[in-house]
Design a protein around this nucleic acid. Sequence first.
DNA 1: ACCTTTGTACTATTATATTAGTACAATAGG
DNA 2: CCTATTGTACTAATATAATAGTACAAAGGT
Lengths: 127, 127
Amino acid sequence: MEFSFSIDAASALPIYAQVERGIRQGVATGILRVGDQLPTVRELAVMLRINANTVAKVYRDLERVGLLETRRGVGTFIAVREKKPTKRERERRIAEIRADLLARIQMEGISLLEMIEELNSIHTNTK
Amino acid sequence: MEFSFSIDAASALPIYAQVERGIRQGVATGILRVGDQLPTVRELAVMLRINANTVAKVYRDLERVGLLETRRGVGTFIAVREKKPTKRERERRIAEIRADLLARIQMEGISLLEMIEELNSIHTNTK
DNA sequence: ACCTTTGTACTATTATATTAGTACAATAGG
DNA sequence: CCTATTGTACTAATATAATAGTACAAAGGT
């Protein structure tokens, strides 16, 4: 698997937020590991067909948070694995994911049963 | 159940998009039905603690799309039920929901099995 | 030492988002 | 007819987002 994601310029979600999400998802899913080098500001800008300043902003923001580490003249690297949330926090997030999913399937006219079966089918096919 | 949602001013998603999502979700979930009157522009602005212009923009946009119907001096109403998607379209959306869910639970360190059980528990409790 | 690469820091420009305020047009109801 | 209500249409101001372009500082390689 390779580190890549796409930008939807038409989305209401600003580009910089989409880039940040892409990187965070890469880290969280293990596609990006501690020490891995990211594309350079200019490279990623070309890859995503966005402005280099936008990429630079994301790198800067994520560096401030501690997720990335930048070495001038060298590149930008994944600095840390995201810290484990508390049990309480984890449950809150599960509840949030659940609520979002329910709202969304209801919105699309999909029954909970159908969705569960959809997920079960992946589960049986993948293991 | 009552028509209500909340705005997160800190979200990267612009306020107008959050309002639009709230209304669309209301319609899709059946909380808002054809013919139902929405709060007035000024009322909803107060309810959500945002500017009336932002609400007006959303009403205008949704009217253009045909989801709302506005009668001057009277109010804004739900115009149509969203049209049924084709079978193909529906499957595409299910796949999209599934992909988003998988990415998200992986990002949060939640196993698919755990998520399925979470959903199953709702299912058994609600029926 | 020199050159290249890389992140950083600017300025400038354009577009969008949000708020504030005012005014107007259409409609309902007394 | 009159008034209040409601959506609509403006202007203005501020902030953010995104692009374009230039320049600089730090590090590595030669």
